[in-house]
């Protein structure tokens, strides 16, 4: 770890979580560095969801330390993580179908009108929220402008995914976690989401990408964290390893490369 000069955004060490007799996270480590897309891959049951949940407060670990930008954190719910500027794009998207795009983007953090109408009458500033939502969606090249009050249920799968990503990108200050963002999408829509991921990275926000889709992982990830049996098994550089080798390491068919050849930190710029 001597070459590590940049402070990680997330630094997890020795994280442990058990469910009864099952050890979901077995002294696992985790690192996310500024500006990168870190893919997390692993077989079903390897615990990749658990470790990511531990990082965002959805699971409370029993042991180990998690530091965000060098400061130890103890989240007890995803809301704590959200207050720190960590956003999550869930596989099931977490959008309310009957509400508008703008309503969904601001769910739980609505803006109120200035002055007495906001403080006493609690009135929402719909205009400002709509403008903001429209601006963020346009930034990501997502929307025609007149549609911001459309109910989310009238959007296609790719459009909904776009709204969820835009919401995360608009509010994330630290990093974004994306859980299987292309799993439910068609080829064309997946492509759009991968472009979105790159757009978000270009804004300087690091991303943790959980995915089963190797072509997608290899296309957008800077480093690939391979999770196996509740541990970080290896971290590889997708430019230096083939997809089939990565899958072989993930399933245990192939030994991981020696630590010196792994990509535990990003290459120096």
């Amino acid at each position: 770890m001597t070459r590590q000069t940049v402070q990680p955004v997330v630094e997890g060490r020795n994280i442990v979580k058990r469910y009864g007799h099952v050890t979901a996270i077995d002294h696992a480590d985790f690192d996310l560095f500024p500006g990168e897309v870190l893919a997390v891959i692993g077989d079903n049951g390897a615990g990749k969801s658990s470790i990511v949940k531990a990082i965002c407060g959805a699971v409370i670990p029993e042991g180990g330390t998690i530091k965000i930008e060098g400061k130890p954190v103890h989240f007890t719910s995803p809301l704590d993580a959200r207050e720190m500027g960590i956003e999550i794009v869930y596989q099931q998207l977490a959008l309310s179908p009957a509400l508008s795009i703008a309503d969904n983007m601001f769910a739980g953090r609505e803006l109120r009108k200035p002055g007495i109408r906001g403080s006493l009458l609690r009135q929402l500033d719909k205009k400002r929220m709509e403008e903001f939502a429209r601006e963020k969606l346009t930034e990501l090249g997502l929307m025609t402008v007149q549609s911001i009050n459309q109910a989310v249920e009238t959007l296609s799968g790719g459009q909904r995914q776009g709204v969820a990503v835009a919401r995360a990108a608009a509010f994330a200050r630290k990093f974004i976690i994306m859980d299987e963002p292309t799993a439910a999408l068609g080829v064309k829509e997946s492509r759009r989401v991968l472009e979105l991921i790159q757009d978000v990275r270009a804004k300087g926000i690091p991303i943790i990408l959980i995915s089963h889709n190797m072509p997608h992982v290899f296309e957008v990830a800077d480093r690939v964290h391979i999770h196996r049996l509740g541990k970080r098994h290896a971290v590889v550089d997708p430019a230096k390893i083939s997809m089939s080798d990565a899958v072989a390491i993930m399933t245990g068919a192939l030994e991981p490369p020696p630590v010196a050849e792994q990509q535990l930190a990003p290459k120096a710029a």
Binding site: P78, R82, Q92, L93, A94, S96, A107, G108, R109
Partner: peptide, 11 residues
């Protein structure tokens, strides 16, 4: 509309 989604989006 969808309680689980609402919870996940921070309500």
């Amino acid at each position: 509309d969808d309680k689980d989604s609402a919870e996940l989006s921070g309500i």
